[in-house]
Deep mutational scan, measured.
Amino acid sequence: DLSALRVEEVQNVINAMQKILECPICLELIKEPVSTKCDHIFCKFCMLKLLNQKKGPSQCPLCKNDITKRSLQESTRFSQLVEELLKIICAFQLDTGLEYANSYNFAKKENNSPEHLKDEVSIIQSMGYRNRAKRLLQSEPENPSLQETSLSVQLSNLGTVRTLRTKQRIQPQRTSVYIELGSDSSEDTVNKATYCSVGDQELLQITPQGTRDEISLDSAKKAACEFSETDVTNTEHHQPSNNDLNTTEKRAAERHPEKYQGSSVSNLHVEPCGTNTHASSLQHENSSLLLTKDRMNVEKAEF
Rank of each mutant, 00 (worst) to 15 (best):
K118R: 08
K118N: 10
D184E: 07
S126R: 02
E226V: 13
R135I: 03
E254A: 13
Q11K: 10
V34D: 00
E110A: 02
Q147R: 12
D200Y: 06
R70T: 04
N157T: 03
R77I: 13
H40N: 01
L50I: 08
N267K: 05
Q283H: 12
K192R: 04
S58L: 00
S126G: 09
C46G: 03
V190L: 03
E32Q: 04
L217F: 06
Q239P: 06
R295G: 09
I123N: 13
V7G: 01
C90W: 12
Q261K: 09
S280N: 12
L158F: 08
D218V: 02
L85I: 11
S35P: 01
S228T: 13
A223V: 11
M127V: 07
L136F: 12
G97D: 04
S75N: 15
N246I: 03
D213A: 13
I206F: 06
Y104F: 10
V34G: 02
E302Q: 15
P257Q: 06
L164M: 09
N297I: 03
R77K: 08
F78L: 15
V265I: 05
T248S: 13
Y260F: 03
T189I: 09
A253S: 05
L136R: 07
L245S: 12
M47I: 02
K222M: 12
K108R: 15
M17L: 05
R251H: 09
L29F: 10
P114L: 08
K87N: 15
C273R: 12
L268M: 04
L203W: 07
K31T: 12
E32G: 02
D213H: 13
S264Y: 12
E180K: 15
L51F: 05
R70K: 04
E148D: 11
N65T: 11
E299K: 08
L86M: 04
V232L: 08
L50V: 14
K37N: 13
F42L: 01
E249G: 14
S75C: 15
L81H: 01
I215V: 12
K19Q: 06
S241G: 05
N157K: 12
C38F: 00
A301V: 14
A253V: 14
T160P: 10
I14V: 04
A133T: 06
I88F: 11
L21I: 02
R70G: 13
P144S: 12
S216G: 07
L98F: 05
E28G: 01
T275A: 12
V153F: 09
E32K: 02
C46R: 00
I88M: 07
I20T: 11
T36S: 04
E83D: 07
E148K: 09
V82G: 07
Y195C: 09
K55R: 03
L2S: 15
L5I: 08
R132H: 06
K108Q: 02
S152R: 10
P240L: 11
D95Y: 00
A16S: 02
E299D: 09
A16V: 01
L81I: 14
S266L: 06
Q261E: 02
S280C: 12
C26W: 00
L151P: 03
A91T: 01
F45I: 02
C43S: 00
I25V: 05
C38G: 00
N65K: 11
E28K: 00
L29S: 02
I67T: 03
Q154E: 03
S281L: 01
R132P: 11
Q80E: 12
K49T: 12
V153G: 08
L146F: 02
L137R: 13
K37E: 07
R165K: 06
D218E: 09
L5H: 12
K250M: 03
V198L: 04
A279V: 07
A193S: 08
S216N: 06
T233A: 07
I67L: 03
R6H: 11
S197C: 00
H40P: 00
S287N: 09
F42I: 02
P114T: 07
N105S: 06
T160I: 06
K134I: 01
Q168H: 12
K134E: 11
C273G: 07
V161M: 13
K55Q: 03
K54R: 09
D1N: 05
P57S: 11
C46Y: 01
R174K: 12
D188G: 13
D66N: 13
A301D: 15
L155F: 12
R130S: 15
F106C: 14
R70M: 03
P141L: 07
A301T: 15
L48Q: 14
C23F: 00
V265A: 05
T175M: 07
P61T: 02
Q168P: 01
Q18P: 01
C90Y: 14
P240S: 04
S156C: 04
C196W: 04
L29W: 08
K118Q: 06
S216I: 12
G262V: 03
Q138H: 10
R255K: 12
S103I: 01
S150N: 13
H40Q: 00
D66E: 11
Q138P: 04
M127I: 10
E110K: 06
C38S: 00
R295K: 15
K87Q: 10
S183Y: 01
L94H: 11
N243I: 07
Q53K: 03
G128D: 12
E22Q: 01
S58T: 00
L164V: 12
S126T: 02
F78I: 15
S79R: 08
T163S: 13
C90G: 07
L151H: 05
R174T: 12
F227V: 15
S103N: 03
Y129H: 13
I30T: 09
N52S: 06
E202D: 07
L146M: 10
E258D: 02
N15T: 09
I123M: 14
D66Y: 03
L158R: 05
K300T: 11
M17K: 00
A133D: 02
T211I: 05
L164Q: 15
V153I: 03
S266A: 10
L146S: 08
V270M: 11
N131I: 03
A91V: 00
H278N: 09
F92Y: 12
D66H: 14
K108I: 11
N52K: 05
S197R: 02
Q59E: 01
C26S: 00
D231Y: 01
E142A: 06
D200H: 04
A4D: 09
T68N: 15
T207N: 11
A220E: 11
E74G: 05
K293N: 07
H284L: 03
I25T: 00
E299V: 05
S264C: 12
I124N: 11
E285G: 02
I124V: 09
E148A: 02
V13I: 03
Q209K: 10
I20M: 14
S263I: 07
